[in-house]
Structures are given as structure tokens and as C-alpha cells.
Design a protein around this nucleic acid. Structure first.
Lengths: 226, 226
DNA sequence: GTACAATAAATTGTATACAACCAAGGATGA
DNA sequence: TCATCCTTGGTTGTATACAATTTATTGTAC
């Protein structure tokens, strides 16, 4: 068959990466339920690609811990429990504490201006109670802060959990109360960053992520997701 | 060509995993220097395998962050600095603090007996100043403690750094002074575990890993590794 | 009907073939 | 001499073919 000539705009990535992201998304959202066996030919046909790039995508998922490989039996989707969510947020929180010193150290006026810009957009979204927009802006906001750090390996750990965070922090933002508190906290964060107040920022960020976790866990428990 | 029919004993893993580990080892030990481009055909020939399993190994290394992928240009070995070592130990220390509560909670008499057994072997190795044996036992000792925890995702983060730790903590163990201190600390750890003294253990473990890091960094700086 | 052996089907593991792309160098023309 | 186009060699991207292994199925004996 012909190559996948989708290529929207400038993107010309290998289709193994497309497959990787699609599978990752499908697993995290539960479209492919935990315990499912991923038979290569089935998914290759479904994605209209050959087994080769699909297998490379599976190897990546394997390193991510999303699927488990069994000798001569291929991969199975790993289970995903409330404890996982707890751990993911806990890891993220701990990593954040590790990078904050370098974040405060490296913050520039340009970065602060950018954060204030995002905050303004968040004000609007908050006003309109647009949870979807807030979820996107929220990731942008936190991402901008995190990537002020030069601790590349720690950032890599955070980024490896990024996809989960995206999904689950959206759940937290769905809560009206949490949304309002989080919004205030975001404003406070920028103020603390402005003053280079490391201790204050650490305390606030820790609280912020802890609250997000609790709200998210409550939401998940309610939906009896596990 | 015929399949790689090496298969020593019971091991019958796919050769992509063999390739993965060999490449990983070669990169971490510096046999393949940072910045090198890994041309698939070259290494496939060298390992006497085809490109397919090699590519799957490369995808895993990509997720590990050991190599970097450039569109249509393949992978290059990422640089590996003193800062990386610092971060790796820092991450490990932070993760350890997160799992220790569950370690203390789950510790059993059998586990303690096992730890004392390892300690005894370490006594012998310490007596004989056998640094190589100590390095192995050291990993076994710490691994046994870590895996008392049921925080699987956090353990996964620790394990993902395992290979580095193996290499670098061996450097720390090469120091006679550090070796002696570490040995004492290991004995103290078991005592604290016995008493389920979480706070004491946290304090000691934090100190222990911090000292290992410093010794290792000093050794690396001396060898002007970076 | 159950147990076991033999066989067939499904699936993964590996190798190879070919297409697409990039980079470098030479040919052509001004 | 310089710029531009084209070609070509090298390398990655993908598809496919085939081998090996596991799992399911069938058949036969008891």
C-alpha cells in the first residue's frame, strides 16, 4: 500500500509516532480496556499501517509502562487503578519540589509576562466557566513554569506522566469549587514568582497539587472508575 | 541467516531485548560516546541481527532518554553530564522518601531475615575489601528494601534509573572511606526497619543516598568524566 | 466421556525488499 | 568563478515474507 500521506501542514513525523500517540490516548482514556491483549495484525489493519511501525510504537508503550510484554504472547494493556492516579500526582508533586529552586532562579521578566498573558486568558475562561479551555490553559500555565527549570532529567520524569496529568487534572478542573480555588492559586503563584519567593512558592505549589489530586480522586471514586 | 540460537539455560528473550541491553550498557559506559550517530545497518551488522529488532531496541532507548531521534536522520547518543548524575541521585532520593512509609508498613520477618542474610555476605566482602562483590550485594540490599513497597509506579521510576545507579554507585563503593560508612549505615537500616522506625529510616536513607551521590560526583570529577 | 497425541490455526519474532528522503558533490550554464 | 540544478550514494521509513512458537482443535484410544 501507499505511504500514509496525511501530513497536515508541516508535520511529517513517522507513523510509528502517530500510532504511539493514538494507542497511548486510547489506553489512557480507557477505549482499550485494561487487560486487553493488543494483537498486532488487528491494530495494524485498524490503523491502516503495517506491523513494523506498530511494533515500534508498542515498544515505546512498553517503556512507558502502559502495556506489559509477555514472551511470545505480545502485549497486554496494564491495569490502571486509583492507586496509580495517587502515585502519579505524588510523583509529580515530589518532582515539582525538586525543580522549583531552579525555576525561581531562572525566571525572567519575559517568562513572567508570558505567564500573565496566560492568566488573562484564564480569567476570561474562568468567567465563562469554560472548563475545556481552562484545562488547556492550565497545562500551558504549569508547563511554562516547569520548563523554566534546567533540570532536564527531572523534567523528563514529569513529562513522562504528562499524558495522565492532562487527563486527570481535567477531571479536577471540572469541579466548580476547585476551579475557583485553583484560579486564585495561579494568580498567587505568579505573584510569588515575581518576588522570587521560593519557600512561599513551594508551599503553595505543594498545596495546589495536593488539592488537585484530592479533587481528582474524589471525582474518579464517584464515577466508580475503579 | 539463522536465528540467534544462543539461549543460555532458560533465557529465551527476544533479541531486541538483548540488543537493547547491550546498547544501553555501551552507552552508559561510554563505549559509544555521546554525540555518536547510531546508524542502523552498522550496529545491526555488528550485533549480527537485522534492522527490525535493532530499531525496536532504539525506540526503547528513545523512551529512556538515552538517545535522541532526529527526523529522517536516525538517533544520536545524548550527552551525559555531571548534572545528569546529580539529578539521577536526586530523583532516586526523592522517590525513596515517597516509598519508605509503605516499606516500613509492609516489612515482614522473612524480609528482615533476607536482609540480614545479605548483610552477612556484605560483612565478608567488606572484610575482604572486595568492591565488586560489594557493588552487587549493595544493589541487592537496596533492591530488597525498595521492593517491599507496593507503590508500583514510583518503583518504576526508580527502576528506570537502575542502570545508571548500578554504574555510579559502584564508583562510590570504590572509595574505602565511603565503603566503611555505607556498611555501617546498612546495618543501621536493618535495625531501624526491625523497629519500624519510619522517621529514623527516612533520615538515615536520605543521608546515605546523599553521601553516595557526593562520593560518586567527587570520583567522576576527578576522572574529569565531564 | 476423558485423556492424550497429533495437527492446524493464529500470532509473534526476525529478516529482507523496496520506497522515500536527505545530503553532498558534480555538471551545466551564465 | 559562482550559482543552480540534477544525480547519486547513503540512511531511514514502511511493507511484506517467512520462521518459530504458542494456542486451539481435531482425532484416536481407552
Amino acid at each position: 500500500m501507499a505511504y500514509q500521506t496525511f501530513d497536515p501542514g508541516l508535520e511529517n513525523r513517522p507513523i510509528r509516532d502517530i500510532a504511539y500517540e493514538q494507542l497511548k490516548h486510547a489506553i489512557i482514556t480507557g477505549q482499550i480496556p485494561a487487560g486487553s491483549r493488543i494483537v498486532e495484525t488487528v491494530y495494524a489493519d485498524q490503523l491502516h499501517i503495517s506491523r513494523t511501525p506498530l511494533r515500534e510504537a508498542l515498544r515505546k508503550l512498553e517503556r512507558d509502562g502502559l502495556v506489559e510484554y509477555v514472551l511470545h504472547r505480545g502485549v497486554v494493556v496494564r491495569a490502571f487503578t486509583i492507586d496509580d492516579i495517587d502515585e502519579i500526582f505524588t510523583i509529580r508533586n515530589a518532582m515539582m519540589m525538586l525543580i522549583l529552586p531552579s525555576v525561581v532562579e531562572n525566571v525572567t521578566d519575559e517568562a513572567l509576562a508570558r505567564l500573565r498573558e496566560i492568566l488573562k486568558e484564564m480569567d476570561v475562561a474562568q468567567e465563562k466557566a469554560d472548563a475545556d479551555a481552562l484545562a488547556v490553559l492550565n497545562r500551558e500555565f504549569h508547563g511554562s513554569i516547569e520548563h523554566l527549570s534546567d533540570k532536564l532529567r527531572i523534567l523528563r520524569v514529569i513529562d513522562s506522566q504528562e499524558e495522565y496529568i492532562k487527563r486527570f487534572s481535567a477531571l479536577a478542573i471540572a469541579s466548580v469549587v476547585r476551579r475557583s480555588n485553583a484560579h486564585q492559586e495561579h494568580h498567587q503563584m505568579v505573584a510569588l514568582l515575581e518576588n522570587r519567593d521560593l519557600e512561599g512558592l513551594k508551599k503553595l505549589m505543594h498545596h495546589h497539587l495536593e488539592e488537585s489530586k484530592e479533587t481528582c480522586l474524589a471525582a474518579v471514586r464517584e464515577k466508580h472508575y475503579s
